[in-house]
Amino acid sequence: EFILQPIHNLLMGDTKEQRILNHVLQHAEPGNAQSVLEAIDTYCEQKEWAMNVGDKKGKIVDAVIQEHQPSVLLELGAYCGYSAVRMARLLSPGARLITIEINPDCAAITQRMVDFAGV
């Protein structure tokens, strides 16, 4: 995967993360976080594997957030924003999600994903 990915990106003209974002923009409903998550899950199941938590493990994350109702949540590494959208949609009003992503391209994609999801 890591050796072939740059070749695939070159042939496709963009990165996997950008392709995931484009899929979301084309297939998800703006302002609907659940729709965004479903679009990412569908893309990763049908098109390309991606390094995200996914729906199965995501339900565990959901349960922890719902049980503890944090007022501040810190995410280290956002990748394409799946977990940020997943967690933010469950936060109480006034709660904050702080996401740190070292890769500026992934940070920009995450910001667009979060904005599109409306969270």
Rank of each mutant, 00 (worst) to 15 (best):
N9H: 13
C106Y: 03
C106G: 13
H27Q: 02
E17K: 08
V24L: 00
E1V: 11
F2S: 11
E101K: 13
G118S: 03
L21R: 13
Q5L: 13
N32I: 06
P6H: 03
T99N: 08
P104L: 12
L21Q: 00
I3L: 09
P104T: 07
F2I: 12
T110N: 02
I109L: 01
G13R: 11
G13S: 15
M113R: 00
A108G: 04
H8R: 07
E1A: 13
I98F: 10
G118C: 03
M113L: 01
N103K: 12
K16E: 10
I100L: 11
E29G: 07
Q5R: 12
V119L: 05
I109M: 00
F116C: 09
G118V: 00
H27Y: 03
E1Q: 14
L97V: 08
M12V: 13
D14E: 10
I20N: 01
P30H: 05
Q34K: 08
A108T: 01
I7F: 09
T99P: 03
D14N: 09
I7T: 14
T99I: 12
Q26K: 03
Q111K: 04
A107D: 02
C106R: 14
I100N: 00
I20S: 02
V114L: 05
A117V: 00
I100M: 06
I98M: 08
N22K: 12
Q34R: 11
F116S: 03
D105G: 13
H27L: 02
H8Q: 14
F116V: 04
I102S: 14
K16R: 12
N32H: 07
T15A: 14
Q26E: 05
L11V: 09
D115Y: 08
N9Y: 10
P30R: 15
E1D: 15
I7N: 10
G31A: 02
R112Q: 05
S35C: 07
I3V: 09
M113T: 12
H23D: 08
A33S: 02
A117P: 01
I98T: 01
M12T: 10
P6S: 07
I7M: 11
V114G: 01
I102L: 14
L25P: 01
T99S: 14
E101V: 06
S35G: 10
T15S: 07
G13V: 07
G118R: 05
E17D: 06
Q5E: 11
A28T: 03
E17V: 10
S35N: 11
L25Q: 00
L25V: 08
K16N: 06
L10V: 15
R112P: 02
Q5P: 15
I98V: 09
I100T: 11
T15N: 04
F2Y: 12
N32S: 11
H8Y: 11
P104R: 15
E29K: 09
E17G: 05
M113V: 05
A107V: 07
N103I: 14
L97Q: 01
K16M: 07
H8D: 10
L10Q: 02
L10M: 09
I109S: 08
G31E: 04
F2L: 10
F116Y: 12
P30A: 04
L11P: 12
Q18L: 13
N103D: 15
E1K: 14
G118D: 02
E101G: 08
L11H: 10
N9T: 12
D105H: 13
H27D: 02
I20L: 06
Q26L: 06
S35I: 03
D115E: 15
V119M: 04
I102M: 14
Q34H: 08
G13C: 04
Q34E: 15
L10P: 15
I102N: 10
A108S: 15
L4V: 10
E29Q: 09
R112W: 03
A28S: 03
A117S: 02
E29D: 11
Q18H: 11
L25M: 10
Q5H: 13
V24E: 00
I102T: 13
D14Y: 06
E17A: 13
A108D: 03
